[in-house]
């Protein structure tokens, strides 16, 4: 994503300080980093590495862990549910980097102008994000009910004779949960974009409009490139959220019917906490981590390469 000529270079890209210019203060960044990094290493990275180790054991959470080599992984790759979960996670990723991002950005663009009632609209879209997952699961579950639910009542009213079973249908269950998740996620993405838009100088947009660009062109060539750092954040977060998606699956179907809506995080949770197979659960977590790490490498490689140009 390179900048278009419209943008003054200093606006689009921050300059980096030359590394050797002040070699006497080489220690400065380390001072800034010392406490946060130490905390993060101790409480997140440490336990994470410990759970890598656990994935090689048969730990049940109570007795002492015993090393069993790669048995958990062998079992995992032969587990049919694992592959269902992988496929479902792929559906989540694709849905999450498209629908909420587009909708959230569109809303942020609209709400950043002076539309009447903007405040109320912002709150309305953010409200799903603060409702407890249990409640979302209840309400959406009722909306999906086949016999008297909201969706099927509407469908029957418009003449559909045999409406679907939604959550009871193994082919649809995952999509049903994803729809609810998108409903929840849009406000969150909107919030991030609204913050990002604060960094965009409105005079730039006005300038491009005066130059005869229509709103779409102004957006495409001025705002979108300026928002690219936010978009990167949003996409990375969406990928991570979709891979970690768990609470809605757990409350809406618990992975059912017959594991058809299972995702890796949900499967991990059930194995580790319901079945007392901490080792096996850790193995699932490691696989999930490696998949996410793949995406993050792509991100880092992309951004750091473009940043290196300076």
């Amino acid at each position: 994503m390179t900048a278009t000529p419209v943008i003054p270079a200093e606006k689009a890209r921050p300059a980096r300080r030359a590394p050797r210019a002040r070699s006497k203060s080489w220690w400065v960044p380390y001072v800034f980093l010392a406490i946060p990094l130490a905390m993060f290493l101790m409480w997140v990275i440490g336990p994470m590495i410990y759970s890598f180790y656990l994935s090689l054991t048969n730990w049940d959470g109570v007795s002492a862990p015993k090393l069993i080599g790669l048995r958990n992984y062998v079992r995992l790759f032969n587990d049919r549910v694992f592959w269902i979960a992988i496929a479902n996670n792929a559906k989540w990723v694709v849905s999450f980097i498209t629908a909420p991002v587009i909708l959230g950005l569109a809303l942020a663009m609209v709400l950043n102008r002076n539309i009447p009632g903007a405040k109320g609209i912002k709150s309305a879209f953010y409200s799903p994000y603060i409702i407890a997952p249990v409640v979302i699961g209840l309400i959406w579950g009722w909306m999906y009910q086949p016999a008297n639910g909201l969706f099927n009542s509407v469908l029957r009213a418009v003449g559909v004779t045999d409406p679907p079973g939604w959550l009871a249908d193994p082919r649809l269950a995952t999509w049903c949960i994803i729809a609810a998740a998108i409903w929840r996620q849009v406000g969150y993405v909107m919030t991030l974009y609204l913050a990002g838009l604060q960094g965009v100088d409105p005079s730039l947009i006005d300038a491009s409009m005066v130059d005869g660009a229509n709103p779409w062109q102004a957006f495409r060539h001025v705002i979108w490139p300026l928002l690219s750092p936010v978009t990167v954040v949003v996409v990375v977060i969406s990928i991570i959220d979709s891979l970690r998606s768990f609470d809605l699956v757990f409350v809406m179907t618990r992975g059912g019917p017959a594991n058809s809506s299972s995702v890796l995080a949900n499967m991990m949770y059930i194995e580790a906490f319901n079945n007392y197979k901490m080792g096996y659960g850790a193995a699932i977590a490691v696989v999930l981590f490696l998949i996410s790490a793949g995406f993050i490498f792509i991100y880092l490689w992309q951004t750091l390469r473009s940043e290196l140009e300076y």
């Binding site: 980093l33 990094l37 993060f40 290493l41 409480w43 997140v44 990275i45 440490g46 336990p47 994470m48 410990y50 759970s51 656990l54 959470g61 990375v236 991570i240 891979l243 970690r244 768990f246 890796l264 995080a265 991990m268 949770y269 580790a272 906490f273 901490m278 659960g281 850790a282 977590a285 999930l288 981590f289 996410s292 790490a293 993050i296 991100y299 880092l300 750091l304």
Partner: peptide
Amino acid sequence: RLILFIFVAGMMLPFQILLLPV
């Protein structure tokens, strides 16, 4: 870059697995 990667990587693990180690 390594430090940035550590921060980003740490937020990717499904945190539920950290429950009992923590």
